[in-house]
Computed example of a mutant assay.
Amino acid sequence: MVIGSETTAGRERRAARIGLPGILLGAGLGGFVDGILLHQILQWHHMLTSTDTARIGVRYYPANTVHGLQINTMWDGFFHAVTWLLVLTGLALLYSRVTHARGRLWTSRKLWGWVLVGWGLFNLIEGIVDHHVLGIHHVRTDAYQTWWDIGFLVLGALLVAGGWALQHGAAPVEIGAPETAR
């Protein structure tokens, strides 16, 4: 290392530190899109609206009764609280790792690539666990239920692949103070 300058490896180490915050932001924001769009606006499902819940020992709560809607609304609230904590944690980590060049970071392909990876991972994990393993709800319960669930997973995989390609091909963003020789 040359005194007063930084090696390429040092810049890459600092740039790589935005991966986890970006993934957490993406997972939280992806959860918000799911919860707001699918749970609230379209009302396609809520957290415990699948009849498959009985096979894992969870009671079925249909959304077409007042009690069922109350229980599902409460569980949707817990879901939103978790997604909010993911976003808050991602922002806190990102803020703690960025000591200068914040403007460049928010417009960087690196960060938004990692956010897309996080959103895709949310879709894949939530889709596999909730829709297929636990069966507590499905994207949409109708004659095409399986296709909706598969489409959700395909969207997740496309988001991961697109995000990975976006951040992988981007120039590193310097996010911390340059290292100096001691």
Rank of each mutant, 00 (worst) to 15 (best):
G156E: 09
S50R: 02
L25T: 00
T65G: 06
H46P: 00
I175P: 01
P21G: 04
I23C: 03
L69A: 11
H138C: 11
A157P: 14
A171H: 08
Q70R: 05
F32V: 00
H137M: 00
W112Q: 01
I56A: 13
A181C: 02
F122V: 08
V33A: 12
I125C: 11
G26L: 00
V115F: 03
V133N: 06
V129T: 13
L38C: 01
G30V: 05
H131G: 03
D142W: 10
I136S: 08
R102H: 15
L24M: 12
W112A: 07
H137S: 07
G127N: 14
Y144Q: 15
R140W: 11
I36M: 06
W164C: 09
T73E: 03
L158I: 14
A157G: 15
G103N: 10
T146G: 13
L94F: 07
G113Y: 00
A16T: 09
R109M: 08
G68L: 06
L85V: 11
A177I: 05
A63V: 05
L86Y: 04
A177Q: 13
A170C: 02
H46Q: 12
G103S: 13
R17D: 11
W148F: 15
E179S: 14
R55I: 00
R59A: 15
L91F: 12
H45P: 00
T49Y: 07
I23D: 01
I150T: 14
R55V: 06
Q145M: 15
L105Q: 08
T8Y: 01
R102N: 02
T89F: 08
V117T: 11
F152I: 07
F32E: 03
A54S: 14
L166P: 05
A27E: 02
L134P: 08
V160R: 06
L91C: 06
D52M: 07
D142S: 11
T83R: 04
L116D: 01
H39W: 10
G19A: 15
G113E: 02
S5L: 07
W164P: 06
L159K: 00
D142P: 14
W112E: 03
T7K: 04
W75D: 03
L25E: 07
I3T: 12
